[in-house]
Amino acid sequence: MTDLTQETISAEIADRHQREQGSGAVHPRRDFPPYRSTVLRHPTHELVRADPEEIELVSPAFGHTDVAAHESDLTIQHAGEPLGERIIVTGRVLDGDGRPVGGQLIEVWQANAGGRYAHKRDQHPAPLDPNFTGVGRCITGEDGSYRLTTIKPGPYPWRNHRNAWRPAHIHFSFFGTAFTQRLVTQMYFPGDPLFGLDPIYQSITDPAARARLVATYDHEVSEPEWALGYRWDVVLTGPGATWTEPEDPDHA
């Protein structure tokens, strides 16, 4: 893959975006070859429409027995302070009607300030930080709010193509009010120069949808002499317009 250039990847991205203009797609296209690892890992059949039953319309319950309050601060999990730019990330989790998703689990993981994960498979020769594991959790408040304290992650190289770099991001995992609203995604930082080059970010072909993964710098969230603040709201919509299983078995 090392002879594969950014120019080739960028041309593939541009071509795909042009073909999908106005498609209304929200989520990434699973079949998105500029991200080479998708090639053998996406289904080739259309998804089959299913009518959600009771189990699919509710979600696992999490609570403060599952998550300790200090887990929302990724900077206090070791003896010393981690290196890097301390930040606060806060926002609300809402459903498609704008109602708060309260009392639900959020999980996060990220690279350290140097762009290195505390993970044995991360081969990037950037330093590990003994004071930063990069893992956190919290339970949303009744108003759907969450607040994390962490370090701004660094961008890092990967082997999708030659000189491939991921924009700085924090991985987030959410549960909604229904299991069908389950969401794993990545939050990005405003103004990242790598956005246009990254096949993972660009796998979301609608620019407005892509922009929803970018946090906003919010000076009201910043704390004097302490940390810069970012705001990122998340929306987990439910199953769409009512749909009923056809009475007669027609092969899907």
């Binding site: 996060v108 929803r212 929306v235």
Partner: peptide, 19 residues
């Protein structure tokens, strides 16, 4: 109406966080 937040891959490095 608020609009759905898009997903992204879980990536290779979730091992310390999710299991």
């Amino acid at each position: 109406m608020p609009e759905q937040t898009p997903g992204q891959t879980v990536g290779p490095f979730f091992g310390y966080a999710l299991p």
